[in-house]
Design a protein around this nucleic acid. Structure first.
Length: 583
DNA sequence: GCCGTTTTCGGCCCGACTGTTTTCAGTCG
């Protein structure tokens, strides 16, 4: 079993123990070990071979044995038995807001309820209110939460989250009692999917802002409302939380609520090592947990906090405890790409295949946005559901694109449509078009659109073969995942990256919020291998052009700089770069 | 279950909010 598999099982053991009512510190020990393993950069098998497992943080004697069993045999009796002893319905109940391990255990012990449906029936029948610690409101809340979960699920894509967050942020910003405000949490870290939207505000009049927040348009219901914080459900099913602090607490609260949890743990640790104490209220000159203003260090901004902890400023996108501390200590953090560095997109569609706009409309929109170029890469013939183009129509489109470009030239406008194709990678790695045809196109993106069921070896070989074609500059959405909808097909992404390094092929960061593919966790590796990134909208209609901004955020999360991204080049530089693999 | 020049026991992050209580337990982030 590989690292991810082991990490997942340890985390699950933690959850199972929680429901069993085990000592919470024991359950946390499993979750800590899971996190440690998740963050490893080398395979566990190697660590075990070299007998270094016990030196890992959070892994003692008992976990050493369990991890070894999982890695070497793929099985663990302790886990199997534990899992069999707990009905799966109880684990599902953890998703219901307000339901934790204690309540689940009580319901199971007292009423014998062990399924979601059983829980719903018990609530409707008023059975829960009879239990000690439960009442009418608990029943009501459980029923509401169940409804909500069925309707919306627990995770949301970044585009939906931003659509909720940005208007509220603007609204808060314009409130006279707000001193500073920001989005925090995973949205500020630019995660591709998020659980809820967090806002932080500093003010001397928190009550006014709580009232203001809970009366914003688009709120379905108020989940909680106190003196300094409030939670609401927004239309579309996204939960939004507001926290109000005083302005001298703002920087530390912002750092704290931005996370990630893993990042914060290291930050606290670094504070302790320096005789300090870091929490959401400030950075204190103290060995004890405190809020004593006399011990507070003056940290007005997040930069101040990092400086006190001997680090350069770590951008929110990098706060995942994935190497940012080592780099921050040595002032080696990259200067991250800005979305305004992007000069166009090299994978887009028009109404010649499954896009909504004509070539003229596409060009006008991209030019209007200030882009220097925009590639038309409509689908190839095998994607007939998407009205893919055959050779003849590709030839016709080339002429039509040239005509659009001519009209821009005539006006003295340097904007240019680039010709291209999103060529299907067929089974076995064969491409949908011949080299002769691809040689006439400016941009070729090769992507898989059918036959997702192959083995890891087959899919990997298939995609690598496409990368080996000298007319393919870019591999499109390499894993085929659709976030929250469809899992990636089986693929050895490291092997694909290696092949791209070898062949000089670029990898797309498909900036559609449904995809965000290749995943940000792999860009660090690609960058080390010298593989270039192309951030593409995969635009099918005008609303998709804004995906460039989303993609740039995810690229930042993958540690990418302007230099690492091809579509930051000027038109001239890009045209030269596009020919490199062919020469 | 882990950890320790505070080491073989007794800590392990903690504050805000809610609902059910009548001073507090459970959940959440």
């Amino acid at each position: 079993m590989d690292n991810d598999g082991v990490a997942e099982i340890l985390d699950e053991i933690g959850t199972l123990l929680e429901i069993k009512g085990e000592n919470p510190f024991k359950t946390r020990a499993y979750q800590n070990a899971s996190r440690t393993i998740e963050g490893l950069t080398e395979p566990l098998s190697k660590i075990i071979e070299e007998d270094r497992l016990k030196s890992l943080k959070g892994i003692g004697k008992a976990l050493q044995e369990k991890v070894t069993a999982l890695v070497t045999t793929g099985e663990l009796e302790y886990y199997t038995n534990l899992k069999e002893s707990i009905p799966p319905g109880l684990i599902e109940m953890l998703k219901i807001s307000g339901m934790g391990p204690k309540k689940i255990k009580a319901i199971n012990d007292e009423l014998g309820v062990d399924t979601i449906d059983g829980l719903e029936a018990a609530c409707k029948g008023g059975e829960l209110a009879g239990l000690s610690g439960f009442g009418k409101k608990t029943e009501q809340k459980i029923l509401e939460s169940l409804d909500f979960l069925r309707k919306f699920g627990t995770k949301h894509r970044i585009d939906d989250a931003l659509a909720v967050a940005e208007p509220i942020l603007e609204s808060l910003r314009s409130h006279p009692d707000v001193i500073r405000c920001s989005i925090a949490g995973s949205l500020r870290r630019w995660k591709e999917t998020i659980g809820d939207v967090d806002f932080l505000v500093s003010s001397t009049k928190p009550a006014n802002l709580i009232d203001f927040f809970t009366s914003q348009p688009g709120i379905l219901n108020v989940l909680a409302q106190g003196g300094t914080k409030a939670s609401v459900n927004m239309e579309g099913g996204i939960q939004a939380d507001l926290r109000v602090v005083s302005d001298h607490e703002f920087a530390c609260a912002l750092a704290y609520f931005t996370g990630s949890k893993e990042h914060n743990i290291v930050m606290r640790q670094r504070a302790i090592e320096r005789g300090l104490r870091l929490n959401e209220y400030g950075l204190f000159r103290s060995k004890e947990e405190t809020r004593d203003p006399k011990l507070r260090l003056d940290c007005r901004t997040e930069e101040d906090i990092f400086k006190e902890l001997d680090l350069t400023y770590i951008p929110p996108e990098l706060r995942e405890d994935k190497g940012e501390f080592q780099a921050g200590e040595q002032s080696k953090l990259p200067e991250l790409l800005k979305w305004t560095d992007l000069k166009g997109s090299l994978h887009n569609h028009s109404n010649w295949s499954d896009g909504k706009q004509s070539l003229e409309e596409v060009a006008a929109m991209a030019d209007e946005m200030g882009c220097a170029y925009w590639a038309i890469t409509d689908h190839s013939r095998s994607s007939f559901v998407a009205n893919g183009l055959d050779e003849k129509r590709v030839e016709e489109q080339l002429i039509a694109i040239e005509k659009v470009n001519k009209s821009y030239e005539k006006d003295g406008n340097a904007f240019r449509l680039l010709s291209g194709s999103e060529v299907d990678i067929l089974s076995g790695g064969k491409l949908d078009f011949d080299d002769d045809l691809m040689a006439q196109l400016d941009c070729v993106v090769a992507s898989v659109h059918q036959g997702f069921g192959g083995s890891e070896a087959e899919m990997t070989k298939r995609i690598i073969k496409a990368a080996e074609n000298s007319y393919v500059q870019t591999l499109g959405h390499i894993t085929g995942r659709l976030l929250l909808t469809r899992d990636a097909y089986k693929l050895n992404q490291h092997a694909v990256i290696d092949a791209c390094a070898e062949t000089g092929t670029w990898i797309e960061l498909n900036a559609s919020p449904y995809r965000m593919d290749m995943d940000w966790r792999l860009w660090h590796y690609a960058r080390e291998k010298g593989v270039k990134c192309v951030i593409n909208c995969d635009a099918h209609r005008s609303a998709h052009y804004g995906f460039l901004r989303l993609g740039a955020g995810v690229a930042r999360k993958g540690w990418l700089t302007k230099k690492d991204v091809v579509n930051t080049l000027t038109l001239k530089q890009l045209q030269k770069a596009l020919l490199k693999k062919r020469s």
